[in-house]
Design a protein around this nucleic acid. Structure first.
Lengths: 214, 214
DNA sequence: TATTAATAACTAACTGGACAGTTATTAATA
DNA sequence: TATTAATAACTGTCCAGTTAGTTATTAATA
């Protein structure tokens, strides 16, 4: 065992850039493989460093994951809250705009993988699950509720159960995100996500029954 | 290291009962922890045997999981196909009956955990994912399609996109199943699943818009 | 401006625990 | 007594987290 090890390569030192590069690599791998199956060594290699370096910037695997969530999802929620607070048009238009924006910023991006991870690993990492639930899900649901409440208050929507309406509207988009990271290669859909979302909104807004309006 | 080991206990030999007991124990643990995080030793112990015995009855972990799926879900799909083939009433009633039956047989049972596992691990176990997709998801979707096609043909439903309608109707139930095994402890719903499902069907059948019928 | 001392970014190699799968041995049962 | 269910102890591998050692970079001093 040679204690005198040759270090053949010289390594750039860029302490400002490392955290973001590690977060990007981590998001890629977490989204692809899930939490447990992602190896920190792979994350490090993808970011162009070794595992030891990763531990300089992040305390442990859980802290890295938390940082990925905060870095990726919080800005999207901020944006969503901003849109809802400032939107001028009708509630149906807001719903359509919000879901399409969500799809662009989350569904299409690697962030949609976070959602799969949380469903998958919540039972094994209760602390992580509680954090994600409180910081992301609750916040997202509050946003959705607000939209539907507005629709009911303006008389645009019927006075249905808001909790259920939130899920009737957003569960298919959740499914779309989950499928992208699970069965995408096996289930070939005839539709693009954006068209799918529009058709879905049409169904939920206007109903399946013949004789329902427009 | 004593090669001469004392075997203090005497062990019952019940080769007929073992497989079912192992399947039951495996379903419990898979549903609770997921696929990777479930240890075969724990499955064996819960079934009252040791790990070596498990390997007498199942070739490996993947084979055990496959057996759990076949043993648990195939009978439910059989039953679903039977119901659809023989139902007499209207399509809305059939939808309601099917979703409630599904909830009783799958949602409420440990089987709902299988769904979570597949979403979670599909990317890491492509063979398992392909199998599950072809044998369970495709079969379930075919069933759902048939119901909606019937509704359109009888004039009960509008001529909407069937693929989208299937998801508009069933995604919230999927969400209910996934949540049961992930965020259940954090998100307290005001509604029981059965009431939730009825309200959801009301929304999708009749629409969210004010002025849509009944 | 050239030299050198201090700092900390970074690496490579290690540790320890976990777990899928194997096997030699024991003992129940037909 | 022959068969085989069942066990206990093992092997090999994987991986999060640690640490001892190396070197790029900064800045103080000559």
């Amino acid at each position: 065992m040679s204690t005198v090890t040759k270090h053949l390569q010289s390594h750039q030192r860029r302490p400002e850039a490392r955290p973001q590069e590690l977060l990007k690599a981590a998001l890629d791998l977490f989204a692809e493989k899930g939490y447990s199956a992602t190896r920190l060594e792979d994350v490090a290699i993808r970011a162009g460093v070794t595992k030891g370096t990763l531990y300089i910037y992040f305390e442990n695997k859980a802290a890295l994951f938390r940082a990925v969530v905060e870095d990726g999802i919080f800005p999207v929620l901020d944006k969503g809250e901003d849109i809802v607070a400032n939107f001028a048009g009708g509630t149906s238009e807001l719903l359509s705009y919000m879901t399409q924006t969500w799809w662009t910023l989350v569904g299409e991006s690697k962030l949609s993988g976070i959602c799969k991870i949380m469903v998958a690993e919540a039972a094994n990492f209760p602390e992580m699950a509680a954090y994600f639930h409180n910081e992301v899900i609750v916040r997202g649901e509050r946003l959705a509720r607000k939209i539907i409440e507005t629709g009911i208050n303006t008389g645009e929507f019927r006075a249905i159960d808001i909790e259920v309406a939130v899920d009737s509207l957003f569960s298919p988009i959740l499914k779309l995100m989950l499928w992208r990271h699970s069965f995408a290669n096996y289930s070939q859909s005839a539709l693009e996500p954006r068209a799918y979302i529009e058709k879905h909104l049409d169904i939920v807004l206007n109903g399946l029954m013949a004789g329902a309006k427009s």
